[in-house]
Structure formats: C-alpha cells, structure tokens
Amino acid sequence: MSAPSPRAPLPRSPRPIRVLVAKAGLDGHDRGAKVVAQALRDAGMEVVYTGLRQTPEMIVKAASEEDVDAIGISLLSGAHMTVFPRVLELLKEHGLSHVLLTGGGVIPEKDCEALRAAGVGMLFGPGTRTSDLIQYIQREVALRRAHSA
C-alpha cells in the first residue's frame, strides 16, 4: 500500500474556523447566542450550536468531539466566575489548551480582568458589534493554528 506513484493527494481546501456556541447556566435567554451564531456563520465559520443549559462538562465534551478552534459561551445568569474557570480547567484536562475560550454576557469589568488573567480570552458585553467579535476570533484562531502547526 506504500507504493509511491498512485498516491495522488486529494485536493486540499482551507479548513473553516469551527466555533462552539453554548449557553451555560440556568438562564433561558438565548437570543444573543443565536445572533452571534448566525453572524459567525455568515463570516464563513462552522458554528456548532449547542443550545441552552450546557454544563462545563457538556461544553468540553462537545469541543473535543467537534474539534473546534474556539468556544463562545453566552452567560447572563451571573455564574461566569464558576463556569469559565471550570471550562478552562476541563479543557486543560482533555488536552484542549489550544482552544480559544471567549464569550459574552453581563460580566463586570473586574471579573473580566480576573478571568483574562486566568487564561480566558476577551469577553464581550452588551452592545458589542458582531464584526469586532468575528475579527477577534479570526485573529486569535489564526495565531493559535500557526502556533500548533
């Protein structure tokens, strides 16, 4: 099977950025997550949308199976200081440290800073333009892909 000649490589196309969009916690407000999911799709990304009430365990299982480049968590319940660090911890445990963890919701500035210091990416508040989010993910994923290649 290792004969050299007939192994013509199949055509290679650039891999779209894959993003997991999840709603964590118990609040049922998924409008923001859906708007973001649609904007990312329209920017040419493959968006795996998980829907409501995802636990950190479910989010990381999904990230592993779907082999995503980034995770965006929408969180309006105030549980961000538990959810983000736990997801980060599980990502490390599963060998997924290369995955960008970002998100948004109503998160106080000082909490954003603390989470960023812990290794979470940018967190986006109300009023964020989707174009900013798209550019951020594109830039970060390009860096991380180059780094791991």
């Binding site: 799709r41 040419g44 493959e46 968006v47 949308y49 779907e66």
Partner: peptide, 13 residues
Amino acid sequence: SPLTGGALLGDRH
C-alpha cells in the same frame, strides 16, 4: 452556505 462556506450545525442542540 455556498456563498460563505459557513454553516450552522444545530444537531447538538
């Protein structure tokens, strides 16, 4: 999407 190549994959949902 044939235009952007993007996709919304909703089966996990």
